[in-house]
Computed example of a mutant assay.
Amino acid sequence: MATIFVDVQHTCSDIAWRFTQVHIHKVVMLIAFICFAIYEVSASHTVIVLVLVLFDLPFHHLQRATSHVCLIFVSSLILAKTVYQLQIIREGFFLCGSVDINAVDFGVLLMLLFESVVIVHQAQFYDDGSNDIPPVGIVFPYVNRRAADRDVLHCVKFFINYGFYKFGLEICYSVAAINMVCHLDYYSVVYGITVGTLLCMNRKRSAYVWPIHISLFIVTLILQCIAVLGLPLHQCFGDYIYLLCLCQHLYVFMIEAKPQLLDSYGGGSNVNICIHKTLVKQVNPVVDFMSNQSTMLDYMQLYVFKNMFWVSMCCVFLSGASEVSLLSVGLYFGCFIWLWVGPYCFIRSTRRLQNL
């Protein structure tokens, strides 16, 4: 009994360390952005914000370098504030704003140090040769798309590994819609035009214009950071979350653009089998849970696919009811049309469904 408990403890510890390693950088940089771009806005902190927006998010291979840059910069900033408070420094010689060492600087510094601790721990864990190094961003290396249909536990593990890989595009559009509601200004008009253009494209064309969309959004975010004193605080936060999703999905498009990498990737293919000519006559690899239910996972999927239409309509109706504007009228109109048609629209031809 004691041996089983120890094994379970070691397994949970390894999973926790691996999960932390996968997501610690995003959490640390998000905290740094919140602290330096929202709560402690200054010229010195703008350097960190520019590093995050211009280098850390768009370029995954530079993330470790940006962590070192932020760590050195924040440490130097704390030392500079400490030296400035000494009596040997004449206040009239250096003109600056706040020189108080507050919890924001120390909090960001501690988070950066914690990220370094996690990276060093995992490097030592995999250097002994007894543990295989998992792919980048994967928590459970032995769970792939085929294993996701076994039971609920494997399905949860699969979504922890490849949830954003499968539904990243939808998540980006959802975050964009929430961000536009938070703005309700000319920035939201620009976001709406760009997102609407992407919605009119298929996945392959969206992959081509995705870097342009990211570049445009980076420019708008920098403009907002420059004029941050005149904007509500929560708007820059939403923009950073949206930019984070965009850059993460750029990595998904990079995986899909390399067939040799896609074959070995456990998340499976995101190609629509209904429109891809080479896959039309192939057997669907997904288990038919609509006709035969043998596990709890099959019943859960059946419930989701049968009722998600009505849940979506309720969300659209509540969104329209929460605002009194011309856009709300459009939401009401579209919601009533879909409620009138009902789920019978899904029995139409494949071509007409794709046009919807």
Rank of each mutant, 00 (worst) to 15 (best):
H68S: 11
V69S: 02
V143F: 05
H121Y: 13
L153G: 02
F59M: 12
R203P: 06
L50K: 13
M111G: 01
L199K: 02
F237P: 03
G320H: 01
F33E: 04
S319F: 06
I222L: 15
N131T: 01
Y344G: 06
L246K: 02
D56S: 10
S322C: 10
L113Q: 12
C345F: 11
D132V: 11
L86R: 08
Y332Q: 11
D14N: 07
V228K: 10
G267K: 06
A227K: 13
T11Q: 08
G266L: 00
G330L: 06
K258G: 05
C335W: 03
A257W: 10
D132R: 13
S322R: 04
L297P: 00
M111I: 03
V27Q: 05
L231G: 02
L112W: 00
V329C: 08
Y251M: 11
V27F: 13
N102S: 15
G334C: 12
C335M: 03
Y265E: 05
Y303G: 01
H60T: 08
R18G: 04
F55D: 07
M300F: 12
V51S: 07
V324H: 12
V120R: 15
R205Y: 09
F333D: 13
L244S: 09
L250A: 11
S294F: 00
T220G: 01
S75I: 09
R203I: 15
F94H: 03
D239L: 10
L95T: 14
Y240M: 15
M313F: 01
C274R: 11
I48H: 06
H249M: 11
I273F: 04
L279D: 02
F336V: 12
F289Q: 03
Y303N: 08
A257V: 07
G268P: 02
N270P: 04
L109Y: 12
D56A: 11
S98T: 08
N161E: 05
L52C: 14
Y142M: 09
W310Y: 04
G268F: 02
